[in-house]
Design a binder for these strands. Sequence first.
DNA 1: TCTTGATACTGCCCTTTGCAGTATCTCGGC
DNA 2: GCCGAGATACTGCAAAGGGCAGTATCAAGA
Lengths: 202, 202
Amino acid sequence: MADRSPALTTTSYALLGLLALRPWTTYELTKQVQRSLGWFWPRTERKLYDEPKKLVAAGLASAIEQRTGKRPRTVYAITAAGRRAMRAWLDEPPAPPVLEMESMVKVFFADSGTIDQLRATLDEVRTSAEQRLEQLERMIDEDEQPGYEFAGRLPINALGLRFHVDHERHLVEWATWAQEQVSAWRSPVDAAGWDWRAALRP
Amino acid sequence: MADRSPALTTTSYALLGLLALRPWTTYELTKQVQRSLGWFWPRTERKLYDEPKKLVAAGLASAIEQRTGKRPRTVYAITAAGRRAMRAWLDEPPAPPVLEMESMVKVFFADSGTIDQLRATLDEVRTSAEQRLEQLERMIDEDEQPGYEFAGRLPINALGLRFHVDHERHLVEWATWAQEQVSAWRSPVDAAGWDWRAALRP
DNA sequence: TCTTGATACTGCCCTTTGCAGTATCTCGGC
DNA sequence: GCCGAGATACTGCAAAGGGCAGTATCAAGA
């Protein structure tokens, strides 16, 4: 019978992991995903309304239909089978990390444009990373408030947060460094004697 | 008439950028993408056979059908309109970087499993990043060989390579650090008094 | 009472992935 | 000269995922 269920994806397990913390409505899930999971497993809101149905079909979650006045809502909760599935999934080898960075495509093909276009792209990398750093700082502040809902998970959270903070810092530092390097370039292909070897063997 | 062409995506421009360097067959494009572009704009081989057709339909590339004996092949080249489109695209604001990291999902939900599962996940993060670092080192060695095809692009390449090397190093360093932190934990939710605040405000 | 924003979804089209399948060509070993 | 392995050169199909628009209802404050 499990054969008839749609195949579970990483997204399924990501949501199952959230359900392991407590029951959620789909709307709450979308907000929570944006706050936490979205940093390393970004998915559109749209998808998050379909996924829990697959979990229910596979017997890993239960759905309870409620209503606020006339407006319906569905509350999902994990089942015992769901907890077992989650534990088993943690043993499977993870897929390698994937980085998708359109700004780097623009850096890589900077020789199709001007040096000013390259500088503008690097600027954007730096400022957008700075903005995300501020968001992360605010999240850390929230975690430190007394009464934080998942206090037991703070150590685990800290491991991930530390990674993401350093990741965004790396973007800022790289863009700043790259700006300095290209400051003397005459064009994207004329680095005016700049020692690219030194950049790669620091 | 351009209205009838399928909309161009970042993937379209990424391939157009490669065509701006020189003409390629689709097969060559797939190899080249794995080597360079794949680090920051990963796409499956399958897609790379469809995409150039859209470029031709939009008038940004030309296709020349050749054959090696009975086996056909298509060589794509950029057009003048293609170079203009590429230059214009460089001015458009880039999408924010996207990181997809299944291993971090497993770290984040480590409290659904055992401390040993968490340690195994962190090990995998470190060793897989080390392997990618070796790949990058080999690429740098190749770039340094005399007669490298795109010698004029070496400075630009170096900017991107530097980013990716540091990115993989960051993964190694983070995983190593995280291993040290969890070494004394009794379970994923019992950090045995570990100071998570210190990890976030270093 | 009215507006604004939060809650709670669904439909649709397109992009992208992953995998299987189908050929042909080249080169080296025997 | 024959054979097999690996490189070259694609296509078809189903399912995952993204982006956007559209449809309601509810809660709180002016």
